[in-house]
């Protein structure tokens, strides 16, 4: 199933970001952040944590990252989490996370403990990678219409999908 612009708008909403796609947004604040690198890394992580049934990952992830960039505290946390992934990738594979194969990226996520960790934006490195990378991506996907439909739910929690679907039967 292809992630669409509608899914990206829904993800922005579920992520507390308002729900508009108005073009590029530069992160506020004075410290420079390598936005393109954040985008590449999140897309690379999404290719690991998203199911193989979805396509259109790149524009979807780019769109919700654009919304996240408006929140300086979030960007700072994401930047640190991405540095954590890159650091581990360099140690084990001598390359940045986004440059690795899908299998190696998954191994890096496991190396940093993002699979076992509970998310916590101010926790350990594992918990922060889980929060800012893995769970942010999963929240965006499974709160979107396409993500919900993958599970059998057209209007998942966090998506303002109206009050029609709850009345419908499974074969409607």
């Amino acid at each position: 199933m292809e992630l669409t612009r509608r899914d990206a708008v829904a993800a922005l909403s579920a992520l507390g970001l308002g729900g508009t796609l108005a073009g590029c947004v530069a992160p506020p604040g004075s410290e420079p952040v390598a936005v393109e690198h954040l985008r590449e890394t999140l897309i690379a992580a999404a290719e690991v944590v998203y199911p193989s049934a979805v396509s259109g990952i790149e524009p979807f992830v780019a769109a919700f990252l654009e919304g996240r960039l408006a929140d300086r505290a979030h960007v700072a946390g994401l930047d640190e989490a991405v540095a954590e992934l890159d650091g581990n990738a360099r140690v084990w594979y001598d390359a940045e996370f986004a440059a690795l194969s899908v299998a190696d990226r998954e191994q890096v996520l496991r190396n940093v403990g993002a699979d076992d960790a509970d998310e916590d934006p101010s926790g350990t490195a594992s918990e922060r990678v889980r929060y800012y990378v893995v769970n942010d991506l999963l929240l965006a996907l499974y709160a979107s219409p396409t993500g919900g439909e993958l599970v059998g739910l057209e209007n998942p929690q966090g998506h303002a999908g109206g009050i029609g679907t709850y009345q419908r039967g499974p074969n409607a």
Partner: peptide, 13 residues
């Protein structure tokens, strides 16, 4: 499902 997705030690398929 979305809350469930944010817990556990699995991802992907």
């Amino acid at each position: 499902p979305v809350e469930l997705a944010l817990t556990g030690d699995d991802w992907g398929d």
